[in-house]
Design a protein around this nucleic acid. Sequence first.
DNA 1: TCATATTTTGACAACCGTTTTCGTTTTCGT
DNA 2: ACGAAAACGAAAACGGTTGTCAAAATATGA
Lengths: 123, 123
Amino acid sequence: MSARREAVRQALSGYSGFRSAQDLYTDLRAEGSKIGLTTVYRALQALSDSGEVDVLRTDDGEAVYRACDTESHHHHIVCRVCATAVEIEGPTVEKWAAEMGAKHGFSGVTHTVEVFGTCADCS
Amino acid sequence: MSARREAVRQALSGYSGFRSAQDLYTDLRAEGSKIGLTTVYRALQALSDSGEVDVLRTDDGEAVYRACDTESHHHHIVCRVCATAVEIEGPTVEKWAAEMGAKHGFSGVTHTVEVFGTCADCS
DNA sequence: TCATATTTTGACAACCGTTTTCGTTTTCGT
DNA sequence: ACGAAAACGAAAACGGTTGTCAAAATATGA
Ligand SMILES: [Zn+2]
Ligand SMILES: [Zn+2]
Ligand SMILES: [Zn+2]
Ligand SMILES: [Zn+2]
């Protein structure tokens, strides 16, 4: 883990919501870091490959990242206004997805589930 | 509904899976149509705005479209190999998402759910 | 320590899907 | 048939992301 990658991880950990690569780049530069945008992308790629951060796509196709508390399988409920996110578990959903796969003859079933809403603070 | 838009809808209806704008453009040109790529994008935008087609983002951020049988809320199980998709309903999931929202004080809760796997034909 | 091999970095250009622009063509109501 | 309004397509612009490559940092080992 290089110093720059650690800096990116740290910057991401400071937020409870999902952030884009460019957001993080702006944050780091604002703090005085001389990091390059390319390096931020590379760090996020590595962190997501290793499962340390979660990635998802916004409606307009931008990748956003989050340093979650757990590395085990989970989902999120994300605020549409402030982008803060809460980690949630859904045994119900896990089972449902598996059942659906089996029912339709699909193997190697995975799923993506995200919940959106407006959080209490933003209401 | 203009003729070009109708052509895009028709082209999309010919497939059971999700297709990208560029895929459809290639299909239509291959059939001899003189349609432009811009028009394909515009038609898909209109169709998705009106709820006639579903849109989702692939892992690499590309938008893909599908002409579903029903316009009411539903989800899909998508084959990772041939991209064919089956429409599925999940009362269980609907309830779970709503409960999660309420539990964490979120309002106006929506959700995205997609299931992926390898279909029977591709196994 | 010093020299050398390896990895990481960042400026910049390239890439690719998508949107905007704008002049032309088609459609539609009268 | 006429003019207004909408749709169209080619090309340029856009924005996020990835590739390139030379310089800088770091690790290795004599
Ligand atoms: Zn997470
Ligand atoms: Zn799950
Ligand atoms: Zn559908
Ligand atoms: Zn649902």
